[in-house]
Nucleic acid binder design. Structure first.
Length: 489
RNA sequence: GCUCCCAUCGUCUAGAGGCCUAGGACAUCGCCCUCUCACGGCGAAGACAGGGGUUCGAAUCCCCUUGGGAGUACCA
């Protein structure tokens, strides 16, 4: 069997969204699994919408996910160029070939004429298709149109007899009656090829063996197959993977919230979690495993196990999975990921000192099991970095408004002052004494202290928090809280 | 309108005629751990869209209905 060659071919008209990323991932996994080639091709034939910025953004997202390509932008390769806009001569050659064998012809119909025809057909309950008006124009007629200033498109002369079968690795054989396939446009009047044409030429010339793409392309496939056949190219294998939907079951889009891979990155998602989660959208291995490392995915991925039905994107599950991957990070790795967010928040300078790094490391150790997104550290660690934190209103009401609260805080102040240091070893016996003195459960002692030194009723263990803050700051904070309480009364 | 695809818990899925009293994961709800919150552990609830066949036997095969999705562009 010849070497597997697959490609991901985004059009640079925006960011890399979740659906595109999943398609790229499946192609990449398939290539790596079969030790084949993964090529990246930029489909920038839509002059009006394609931009260089978009290309860069997509490339960045691919790099973030770790989907490295063997051929393509920045890489080169034996089958280039990898930008369709640089392959215009190639398309030209093949269009001319199709025209010369009478499998394509120029069409001078205007968009308005076509639109009107479409409406009529729909009204009559017919399939909308080109009526072949320009299918047999004479040279004189063409010259006449040209004289009028009309710019022609080129249409493929589609086979009308029989049917075209799409052999899909996921869906089996899908038959399309050729009467359903009209003479579609393969060359636009601006001199650019259309998608259905360029994709065939490129896939054929680049030696693509498996075309793995979204199911939205299934209906286009018979048209493409006819071009392969007209040109004598061998037809690749197809695999149309299911769509990704939003919670309302409509196609996933911006209105469902974040769909850009880089936006997830910015919000504190890990590439490992994204890859793992995306792999599970339309693919599953067995009945028990959901966490897969990249190498496991490469080893276990197969198109046979890709499901046929569309998948709803479940942000909650992604969040959970992100938490799983954060917990798997070493403390140093977690620090590296969290640093940019802490700097962005102004908690740390561009070049943290060794002492600052050490302090943050100790904080992160406590936070690692509590965050879902890396960016959560900003909110969770705020009181470790600033002293004039706000008190959470609900926490004050629930905890500090109790009659004994001030007494307990005064007691805590003494305890903290008298302890040689704020280790649990030293503090706990003192707190136990307080428990007996006030006749309350440990929580009644600890919660007021927690709210006092953090401003909230949710934090890591109190001994860890106090030790991190140190004697000085802990005392100041309790004192400040005491003052606030007396002001309230 | 026309063409095509799809249909198992709320969600992602396991299930290739008997192994299914339908398994796992997220979410939900309990309980445990516990100074709060997480983490972790244990448990509960929760699905084969409906109807016809085929078969000794159907979540698994066929047909219809219904529902969802896609395409139908000089977008890709």
């Amino acid at each position: 069997m010849s070497k597997v060659r697959v490609r991901f071919a985004p059009s640079p008209t925006g960011y890399l969204h979740v659906g595109g990323a999943r398609t790229a991932l499946f192609n990449w996994l398939f290539a790596r699994h079969h030790e084949g080639d993964f090529v990246l091709r930029i489909e920038d034939t839509d002059l009006a919408r394609s931009t260089d910025e978009a290309t860069q953004v997509i490339l960045d997202a691919m790099r973030f996910l770790g989907l490295d390509w063997d051929e393509g932008p920045g890489k080169g390769g034996d089958y280039g160029p990898y930008y369709q806009s640089e392959r215009l001569d190639i398309y030209k050659e093949y269009v001319e070939k199709l025209i010369s064998i009478d499998r394509a012809y120029e069409c001078f119909c205007t968009p308005e004429e076509l639109e009107q025809k479409r409406k009529e057909q729909m009204k009559q309950g017919l399939a909308t298709r080109y009526d072949g008006r320009c299918a047999h124009l004479t040279e004189e007629e063409k010259a006449q149109f040209r004289a009028e200033g009309r710019k022609p498109v080129v249409r493929f002369r589609a086979e009308q007899e029989g049917a075209t079968d799409v052999l899909d690795m996921i869906r089996g054989s899908v038959r399309f009656e050729n009467t359903q396939i009209d003479d579609f446009v393969i060359y636009k009047s601006d001199g650019m090829p259309t998608y259905n044409f360029a994709v065939v030429i490129d896939d054929a010339l680049m030696g693509i063996t498996h075309v793995i793409r979204g199911e939205d392309h299934l209906s286009n496939t018979p048209k493409q197959i006819q071009i392969y056949e007209a040109l004598g190219f061998s037809v690749p294998k197809f695999a149309h993977i299911p769509m990704i939907l939003g919670p309302d079951k409509s196609l996933l889009s911006k209105r469902h919230g974040a769909t850009s891979v880089m936006q997830f990155h910015d919000e504190g998602y890990l590439a490992e979690a994204m890859v793992n989660y995306l792999s599970l959208l339309g693919w599953g291995y067995d009945d028990s495993q959901t966490i897969f490392s990249k190498s496991e995915l490469i080893e276990k991925f197969s198109l046979e196990r890709v499901s046929k039905n569309p998948a709803v994107f479940d942000l909650k599950k992604l969040e959970w999975m992100n938490g799983v991957y954060i917990r798997e990070l070493s403390l140093e790795e977690f620090y590296d990921r969290a640093l940019p967010f802490l700097q962005e928040a102004g908690f740390l300078p561009a070049e943290p000192s060794a002492a600052e790094r050490d302090y943050v490391l100790r904080i992160l150790k406590e936070l690692q099991s509590r965050v879902k997104l890396v960016s959560d550290v900003v909110e969770m660690a705020e009181y470790f970095f600033i002293d004039d934190y706000e008190y959470n209103e609900k926490a004050v009401r629930k905890v500090l408004s109790k009659p004994q609260a001030a007494d307990i805080l005064r007691f805590a102040l003494d305890a903290i002052s008298s302890a040689p240091d704020l280790s649990e070893e030293n503090l706990k016996p003192l707190f136990v004494q307080g428990q007996e003195k006030f006749g309350v459960k440990m929580g009644e002692i600890i919660q007021p202290i927690r709210v006092a030194v953090t401003g909230t009723n949710v934090s890591p263990g109190i001994y860890e928090v106090l030790e991190l803050l140190g004697q000085e700051r802990s005392r100041e904070r309790i004192q400040r809280t005491l003052e606030m309480l007396s002001d309230m009364n």
